[in-house]
Structures are given as structure tokens and as C-alpha cells.
Simulated assay, not measured.
Amino acid sequence: MASPVRRRAQESRWHTASQVLAWLRLHPGATRAALAQDLQLSSGLATELTGRMRALSLLAEAPAPPQGRGRPTTVLGAHPDGPVVLAIDLRMADWRHAVAGVDGGLRDVTGSRHVSRDPETVLADIRRVIAAVRDRYGHRLRAVALAVAGSIHDGRLAQSATLGWRDVDLTALTAGGTVPLLPGNDATLAGLAEARTGAAVGARAALHLMVEVGIGGAFTVDGQPSTGAHGAAGEYGHQPYGNRSLPCPCGSRGCWDLEIDGRALARHLGLPAPADPRGFARQLLDRAPRDTATRQALEAVAGALGAGIGGLVNVHDPDVVTLGGLAAPLRAAAPEVFAAAYTGGLMAFHRGQPPPVVDAVHGDDGALHGAAVLALDHVTSETALAEWSARPH
């Protein structure tokens, strides 16, 4: 058994290595000198630490592009034989997956539409992909993270009004294997991605909102989302910001969800609810400049979006609001209407310096990036790095 002094030294070593990998995700392709400066490491310690992490197949260094005269330098990146994670984004009409190394960059991004939305059919398709990735990467696959449009609790999808699922066990996706499954709400994970590597980097408190089918989001503080007692925090779409006469698939009435997506647009146009609200909204956004009725429908939705965001700013008092999914193009379709509704929804003391509302950096890939962040937080923890180092390299 290691002595207390040696154990503390080992813990400190992995703590610093974990910090290095977190820094790398925020600064992909940066130099060792920049790493040392930002983390306040001596040049010698940075050299020793990165050398050790190269030997453990955690980091790689490659020559930097030449920039005139001066000593050649190198840039840091994920080791080609290092740990990887699988990120999955499960949506209403389709699902996507990607592999990420410790630098957080997504690769092998692949999408597939649902043949059926039956839970057993969809989960069987996902299991096959997980098995294929495990076969390809072997022990290098260290975690699987799943973003899904619904409320997650104890490894189960408690409810998804979007998918029409209730109480679905997700743990079977990796049953019988050694790779952990980390499920999370898609909008929460998109907010996590914006807080860590997107438009909300540096903000202590940030509100992220994402429109797909309905609206969800996350409130993050110091880069960590608040998920609530049962993992259901951020269900902003089920706030009573809408018409109380309209029933919502969630079981409530008057939900904000029904005012800000393709279903609302169809209703304003006198059309039946579309089978694919997200795709329908995309079509209308493309044709809006040529059609007066469509522009008016988009103005109504943009106004509902802005007013609701004003109400949430009153609740959370964020430094910044980020918009993902369809939220950004919906605002852009009627910016004046959105701005007036947003300002009108704010308490008076917020109006002098309202939190800026900015487009998300990760756009439609927010949930996928967030799933990768969730998995990499697990993989680059001190405990996980110690386990990785114990393997032969």
C-alpha cells in the first residue's frame, strides 16, 4: 500500500494532468508554452508533464506551422493511440454519433433517420453502433454519452414528450460491457458545451436555450449545469408561457413548447401539426422572404420566444443567453419583433443592461459536443487517468 505522502503526490500528478486535458479542449492546437503560461507551470514542469503524458498515450506533439524566423515549436493534441469516447445525440426524427479524443474534437460524425420510433428498435440500432465502435477501438473506448430529448433519472428516460417515450431503461445500451453509459438531456448537454467551449466561455452564469421540437435548455454556473433533484431541470418548454387552452403531449396545458416550434408555425398558418416539426420549421425559414403569411407566422413565434426568454432572465439573472438549434434562425427571421418582446418581458432593473442574447457556437451540433464533454469529464478525471496509466502502453 502506498504511503500517505506518495498517495498525495500521485493524486496531485493526476489532478494536474486532468487540468492539462481540460485546457487542451478549450485550446486545441495550442503550444506547450501557452499551456505553461495559462496554468502557471514552470517550463521544466510543463516539459516533464507533457512528456509523461505522451508516454501514456494521452498527448501528442506535432510541429507547428512555420511563422517566419525563430525557434520551431510544437502544438499539443490528442494522442493517436489515446482514449476516446462515443457521443450520441438521439432526436425525434434521427440520431447521430461521433467519436472524440481527449482534445474534444468530433470525428466520424454519422447520422441516421429512425426506421421506427419504437424504443426497442431505436435502442437496438444504437447498441449495434456501440458494439461496432467498441470492436474498432477496443480498450481505448472509455465511455459512451447519450444526449436525448427528455428527462433522465437513474439511467432511465423518465419521459420524452418529443419521442413519445416514458420510463425507458437506457442502461441496456452498454449492458454486459465495461464501458459506462452517461445519459443526459440534449438541451442540458448543449448548454454544457456552450459554457465550456462555446459562446458562454468566461461567463459565471449562463442560460442556454435550444429549439428543436419544443424548447429546452440549461442554466450553468461556473461551467456546470444545474440538473435538479431528478435530472429534470431545464424543462423550460413546459412553463405556462402559452395559450392555456392548448394541451401539451407532456400532460400539461399552455406550455411554451407549443408557441415556438414548427407546430406553432403550422397553427398560425392554419395547417395541421406536422409530423416533423423541426423539418417543417426549416422549410418555412427558407421560404420566409417570399411569403407574407410565413413571415407573419415567424414573427409570432419570434415574439413568443423573446418574451419567454425575458421571463427566464428574470428567474436566473444570467450573464449571457445563448441560442442553439432553431432558436437562432427564428430570432434572425424577425429580429425587431424578438428584441421588443425580450425587452418587454424583462423586469425594469434588467432593461438598463440586459444580458446579451447571442447565437451558440456549436449550432446544431451542441448536444453532440455536450455529450462528448460529459464523457470526457469522466474519462479525464483523476481516477480515470490513474486507471488508464495502469494499462500497458
Rank of each mutant, 00 (worst) to 15 (best):
D291Y: 06
R290P: 02
R253E: 12
N243F: 05
D317G: 13
R253V: 13
A275H: 12
T294F: 09
L305W: 00
V315R: 11
G242K: 06
V320M: 03
L298F: 08
V301H: 05
E259K: 08
C248V: 07
Q296Y: 10
N243Q: 14
L323Q: 09
A293E: 15
E299T: 13
Y241N: 00
D317F: 13
D286L: 15
A288W: 00
V313F: 03
P318I: 11
L269Y: 09
L323Y: 03
G310Y: 10
R263L: 06
S252I: 11
A307I: 11
A293Q: 13
E299P: 07
T322H: 10
G279C: 11
L298N: 07
G262P: 04
G262W: 10
P272C: 05
V315Q: 12
C250G: 01
G306R: 04
A288P: 06
R267G: 04
G262Q: 09
R253K: 14
A297P: 05
R331L: 12
P329F: 07
P274E: 07
S252N: 14
G303M: 03
G242P: 08
D276L: 08
L265N: 04
P240T: 07
E299Y: 09
R287T: 15
C248M: 08
V315I: 14
T294P: 09
C248R: 04
D257R: 01
G310D: 04
V321Y: 05
L312W: 01
A297I: 03
L285H: 04
I260F: 03
C248K: 07
P247E: 13
C250T: 06
D291I: 04
V320Q: 04
A264I: 02
V301Y: 01
R287C: 13
L326M: 15
T322A: 11
G303V: 03
A304E: 12
G310I: 00
A273E: 15
G308M: 02
L285C: 05
L258P: 05
A307F: 14
L246D: 12
A304S: 15
D286F: 11
G303S: 13
A327V: 08
G254Q: 00
R253F: 15
L271M: 13
L271I: 04
G262V: 09
R263K: 12
T294E: 10
D276Q: 11
P240K: 00
A281H: 07
L330C: 01
H238E: 02
N314S: 12
A302Q: 07
R244H: 14
R295A: 10
T322I: 11
L265F: 08
T292D: 15
I309G: 07
E259A: 06
N243M: 02
L269A: 03
T294W: 05
E299D: 14
T292C: 12
T292I: 15
G308R: 05
L323T: 08
G262I: 00
D261S: 13
R263N: 02
G251T: 12
A275S: 13
R331S: 01
G254I: 04
R295S: 02
L312V: 06
V315N: 03
A297L: 05
I260E: 01
A273I: 08
Y241A: 06
